[in-house]
Amino acid sequence: MSYVTVGLGGIIGSLLRYFLSVAALSLWGKGFPIGTLLANLLGAFALGWLTKNMYVARKLPPYIVSGIGTGIIGSFTTFSTFSLETIQLVEQNSMFLALIYVIASFIGGLFFAWLGSFIAQKATYTEIESL
Results as ranks from 00 to 15, higher is better:
M1W: 05
S2M: 09
Y3E: 12
Y3K: 13
T5A: 04
V6H: 06
G13T: 06
G13S: 03
S14I: 08
S14N: 06
L15K: 06
L15M: 04
Y18G: 07
Y18K: 03
F19L: 15
F19W: 15
V22P: 08
A24C: 09
L25M: 14
S26Y: 10
G29P: 09
K30C: 00
I34F: 01
T36D: 04
T36G: 08
T36Y: 12
L37H: 07
L38M: 00
L38E: 03
A39R: 05
A39D: 06
L41G: 05
L41Q: 05
L41T: 05
L41D: 02
G43E: 01
A44Y: 03
L47T: 10
G48K: 07
G48A: 02
W49L: 11
W49K: 04
L50I: 04
T51K: 01
T51I: 00
K52L: 09
K52W: 10
M54T: 08
V56L: 14
K59W: 07
L60E: 09
L60K: 01
P62H: 12
I64Q: 02
V65N: 09
S66M: 11
I68F: 08
G69S: 14
T70E: 06
I72Q: 02
F76C: 05
F76V: 06
F76Q: 00
F79Y: 15
S80Y: 07
S80N: 10
T81R: 04
T81L: 11
T81P: 01
S83Y: 03
L84K: 13
L84N: 14
I87T: 00
Q88C: 12
L89H: 07
E91Q: 13
E91F: 07
E91T: 05
Q92V: 02
Q92P: 04
N93K: 11
N93V: 11
S94T: 07
S94R: 13
M95L: 15
F96T: 12
F96M: 14
F96S: 13
L97N: 15
L97E: 14
A98D: 11
A98L: 02
A98M: 07
Y101E: 01
V102L: 12
I103S: 05
I103P: 12
A104M: 11
S105V: 01
F106V: 10
F106H: 11
F106A: 14
I107A: 15
I107W: 14
G108S: 09
G108I: 04
G109N: 05
G109V: 08
G109T: 05
G109E: 07
L110V: 10
F112H: 07
A113W: 00
A113I: 08
W114D: 02
W114I: 05
L115Q: 09
L115G: 00
G116R: 02
S117L: 14
F118V: 01
I119Y: 00
I119V: 09
A120M: 02
A120G: 05
Q121A: 15
K122F: 08
A123R: 12
T124M: 01
Y125V: 12
T126S: 14
T126R: 13
E127A: 13
E127I: 08
E129G: 09
S130H: 15
L131E: 10
L131D: 08
